[in-house]
Design a protein around this nucleic acid. Structure first.
Lengths: 368, 368
DNA sequence: GTGAAAGCGCTAACAG
DNA sequence: CTGTTAGCGCTTTCAC
């Protein structure tokens, strides 16, 4: 059906070797031959079969990308960042999503390795103690983690712990003392765990008692009512929420609004990720911004460096590894001040532990 | 380095054929052999090389996906829809983005064909008169368009024209008469053109004069000031905007807000796409919703049908083509009522062409 | 500058 | 049930 290099060769009146050279190293072929080959290719609509080449050269130009989901724009952005650069460099991406499932992570890697991808960029549930990654290293398969922050593996991310700490510090500086953290499944995200540590850091250094993160299922599009109650009812309800990601923050905002809780008057909200859409909300979402696209782009750069260090041409000296450190790279986070954060008003609840009760009390609305 | 089927064969004490069978058709192999092969695979950490198999079988299990960008969640959603189903069926996605560039579309298809993908799902700038697609058909390469709506090609989409008409009708039914449409580059999107036609349909049937779409560069994150002026200044400024997509609508909302134009009091806004995040805005964004994820999923189903019809096993009768029509499939759109739309208040501007001027006038705020 | 030939890793007749 | 063999399409020595 489709023309092969053989067809081109016989049509052009040369051997397949010459055709191959005409394609891959035109300068090593006589102008006459080159022209004839070109013509033959044109006429026969020859399209080189990448599989043949890849089988032979042991390089595919394919990069595996493993992400939890594309429903969270964080990963879509990051993916776009990877694609921008990788496609420029002539690589193609094979995408697999895991839905935060470790089993699917394993399968994805397996599949990609069978496909002989030249490298893998991924965001995993746990970047540290991960046998999958150990295997990759043992087999010296180039890989880079994106978003996972771990010092001991090649990874590109913000310092999640410190970023969270900085964010929660901001809330504290605004007078908030009863601050809760919300997260998706902690088990499914080492980022969330890091962020919770950062939350704890900030709380402790202010002599506040850190609380366990409230885990929220944000695959559904609605906040569970018991969660909502916990946030809004009772004398002890928090005045500020630190949400482990912006999507969650947005969901919470909607839930609060439905419960007639006004943000930021009745509750300050701080997100994490810095999704552009957060600025389009009203009130605009305060968030700890990670440079998601840059994370993808940098992950690519690091992967490429590893791939090139792997090439037979480059001698695998320690210099290469030094030039392109195989260990974590931390990108800078930025706190985006947004209208979802306000200084604490001394409401009845928030003023509970204050001595001066003389100021006019504002009644917090009750949910439900 | 990596073990091959030969290594496994010799380790297990069988021929490579038996190993191959043990892998691909275990039931055709004696239990003893099977066990020995399994053990060998285990010990040698054998990972079958997909390239060899693909070269031989002429099937890769790879699906090309070509999308304009992932920065627009519409496409990220759609991609997730594809991935959900395709990965389930054991296929992998090779992703390429075009940034709405026809040249990149062409290159992407070329690259994917060289990689011998089993089929392609794509969203192109122009689904109708597109030589690329003619080529694909000529070579009987399975493909499906997603989001592009065209009757004459395999495509999955909403009826963009009718959907837009329905949306604009809603605006008209709310009393709006001066309605403008905003779009990204019309040249880069047949969807936008279809939607503009729908806008015109609705305007004409109400005896209103349709206007040319205002093209907005929404790659930048800010609305150009001259565009903004056009929307807000003068006695003739519109009272409602139909935006060709939700991202644009959100950008416009922000621009208007910055100009102290309040939505929907001073301007009603209707988007297109039905991005989930629109419901998290405040006011919640009214939008014509396309089932983006379902579009991706359906595109996959149709592609799979084509691929299977292509298989040597299935006889290529007309029945197959009848069962899985190669032509466009239209999914239902839904208009999401949102708080960005309000009945027209008879402001000074909007009431200009009305005879009854006696009602109290509300002064529209002036931007800048 | 060009061609012959080997072989990348695998599957699929075919023969036994 | 198993082994032998012939390629899939390409690159790449190695001669000439």
């Amino acid at each position: 059906m489709a023309a092969t290099i053989k067809d081109v060769a016989s049509y052009a009146g040369f051997s397949i070797a010459t055709v191959s050279r005409a394609i891959n190293a035109p300068h090593t072929v006589s102008p006459i031959a080159l022209e004839k080959v070109r013509a033959a290719i044109e006429v026969l609509q020859f399209r080189p079969n990448a599989l043949g080449r890849q089988l032979r050269t042991e390089r595919t130009g394919l990069i595996g990308v493993i992400l939890p989901t594309l429903a969270n724009p964080v990963f879509a952005e990051s993916l776009q960042g990877i694609d921008d650069e990788a496609s420029e460099a002539g690589y193609r991406l094979v995408l697999m999503t895991t839905q935060y499932d470790a089993v699917r992570e394993r399968r994805a890697i397996e599949t990609l390795r069978e496909q002989r991808v030249d490298g893998v960029i991924m965001t995993v549930t746990d970047g540290n103690s991960n046998p999958l990654l150990d295997e990759l290293e043992a087999d010296s398969m180039p890989y880079v983690l994106a978003h996972n922050d771990t010092a001991c593996r090649p990874s590109i991310s913000v310092n999640n712990r410190r970023a969270a700490r900085d964010g929660v510090r901001l809330l504290i500086s605004q007078g908030h003392r009863n601050i809760l953290m919300l997260a998706g499944s902690l088990a499914a995200s080492d980022r969330a765990r890091q962020r919770h540590l950062g939350y704890c850091d900030a709380m402790l250094e202010a002599n506040l008692e850190p609380r366990a993160a409230i885990e929220v299922d944000f695959n559904t599009d609605r906040l569970a009512t018991d969660t909502l109650e916990r946030l809004t009812v009772g004398p002890d309800h928090p005045t500020a929420l630190f949400c482990s990601n912006d999507l969650l923050a947005m969901m919470v905002m909607r839930g609060l609004r439905a419960a007639h809780f006004e943000v930021p008057r009745d509750m300050s909200i701080l997100g994490f990720d810095g999704l552009p859409m957060g600025e389009l909300l009203s009130p605009t979402l305060a968030s700890i911004c990670a440079p998601n696209r840059a994370i993808g782009a940098q992950a690519w750069q690091h992967l490429l460096a590893q791939i090139e260090a792997h090439l037979p041409t480059a001698e695998n000296t320690g210099t290469d590894l030094f030039k392109y450190p195989r260990r974590g790279l931390t990108l800078q986070h930025v706190i985006r001040i947004g209208a979802t954060i306000a200084p604490l008003q001394r409401t009845r609840d928030a003023a509970a532990d204050m001595t001066d009760q003389s100021e006019p009390l504002k009644i917090s609305p009750r949910g439900r």
